[in-house]
Design a binder for these strands. Structure first.
Length: 211
DNA sequence: CGGCCGATCCACT
DNA sequence: GTGGATCGGCCGA
């Protein structure tokens, strides 16, 4: 009997379209982004991988969101852009965190991309991360995946995912509901009862090896 | 203008 | 499991 083996073959993909980014349910959007491919191409260097963990931030009614209560500041202004915009901000003074803005303009929904399974441009990402792509912690957190992809808050905040050096593709990787773990979001303890909302989606680690 | 703190990561124990 | 790194955003004075 044939043994299952990792399939890293790159299937022709299509960029996610406006309809995807305009979906009104940001929790659905977060779930739907699992298994999609996130790419960057800076200075001709193509890097990318499979999104394996996301969190939904539900805008003005979500205490864990930067836009809670309709807060509009210089930083959060990006969240009020039309769906399909990159919201990248500095966290803990040293990490750029990458979010996908969804829904209509002025509705500040966003999905934080929390983990990436590296697939394309491994050599380039290895140099950026200064570690082997097979290492634990290579791109399994929101800060480290931005380093691997070369995403930085000063350069890439506000970029349109439909026409820039950052984009997301659907390569028809199917994620079954049984492969998805759902739970509360990370690092949002101060959000009161919103901290308990099941807005975090993950592909189970054991399912990451075979796709 | 001062101070607090964060959607994190890593080294060290 | 714990704490240090490191700095822009934000709020209050």
């Amino acid at each position: 009997m044939k043994k299952a083996s990792p399939n890293k073959q790159i299937v022709p993909g299509s960029k996610l379209d406006k309809r995807f980014y305009l979906q009104e349910d940001v929790v659905e959007a977060a779930r739907n982004l699992l298994g999609k491919y996130l790419f960057t191409r800076f200075d001709g260097q193509l890097t990318g991988g499979i999104i394996t963990e996301t969190e939904a931030y539900a805008g003005v009614i979500d205490k864990a969101s930067h836009a809670f209560g309709g807060r509009r500041t210089n930083r959060t202004e990006t969240m009020y852009s039309e769906g399909g915009t990159a919201y990248v901000y500095l966290c803990y003074g040293m990490y750029s965190l990458f979010n996908v803005v969804t829904n209509k303009k002025d509705i500040p929904h966003a999905v934080l991309i929390r983990a990436l399974h590296p697939v394309v441009g491994l050599d380039i990402m290895e140099k950026r991360r200064k570690m082997k792509p097979a290492s634990k912690n290579f791109s399994g957190g929101p800060g480290t995946l931005s380093i691997a992809l070369g995403i930085h808050f000063t350069s890439h905040n506000g970029l349109p995912l439909a026409g820039s050096e950052i984009w997301i593709e659907d390569r028809k990787l199917k994620i079954a509901p049984s492969q998805i773990t759902i739970g509360p979001r990370v690092g949002v303890e101060s959000a009161g009862k919103d901290a308990l909302l099941p807005y975090r989606f993950r592909i189970r680690p054991e399912d990451l090896l075979y796709h």
